[in-house]
Amino acid sequence: MSLLITDGLFKRFGGVIALDNVSIRVEPSSITLLVGPNGSGKSTLINVISGFYKPDSGRVFFNNCEVTGWPPHKLYSAGIARTFQLPAPFAKMTVLENLLVAAKWSTGESPLTALLHRRRWLEEEAEHVERAFRILELLSLRHMWDRRASELSGGQLKLLELGRVLMSSPKLILLDEPLAGINPRLAEAIVKHISSLRDELGVAFLIVEHRLDVIADYADYAYAMFRGRVIEEGTPKQVLKSPQVLKAYLGG
């Protein structure tokens, strides 16, 4: 059974049809690639799946449960996490705090429980801090833990985005161009992190990315989109060789 299924999604912005009958599947513990030229609807699809946009029609299923139109925070607790194409750090907070925000708190996140269940959330805090440091270690960000997020470089911000979504042990992570603006060596390192997360923790990824040279070898499946439609699907090699996809990318 697939982890994520979208069934005939439509989304229109005024006269532009951003999603036109998009049906995709993401299997558990896999890396699924979403490619296509700019403006083909990839980011819109991510925004619909993560609850930022409501589809005009069509349905989204996650873990055998219909989640169409759920708000982002509810999808997050269900196990879907996402990153943003332009890094969206909590700029005035430290790297460690950025991660702690993303943890799943059982108590202490409302004014009353912060006061009344102080002992309980303090215990949780210790666990979350430990987990945060393990993730920072994994992403080679540990030495930056007490810096404000605004002091990080572009590549480090991408890593921070990834680190945040790992705090809650999501089942599915949607990555919107995780490699954009990253130097080749760091890009290679990020992709290796992603594939080891898939292999070791069983996380599934849906990744929008143009840097196919770096990521294609690690992906299990790929979809190509053009003008709001899925025009090709299959293994990354098949999809990237498809004449339709080449035509869409290169024009002509």
């Binding site: 982002p72 909590f90 925000v101």
Partner: peptide, 16 residues
């Protein structure tokens, strides 16, 4: 503070 710095990101990280 997360909501103040980046509301969309806070929502995507489970904050109502």
């Amino acid at each position: 503070r997360a909501m103040r710095d980046q509301e969309a990101a806070a929502a995507s990280l489970g904050k109502d």
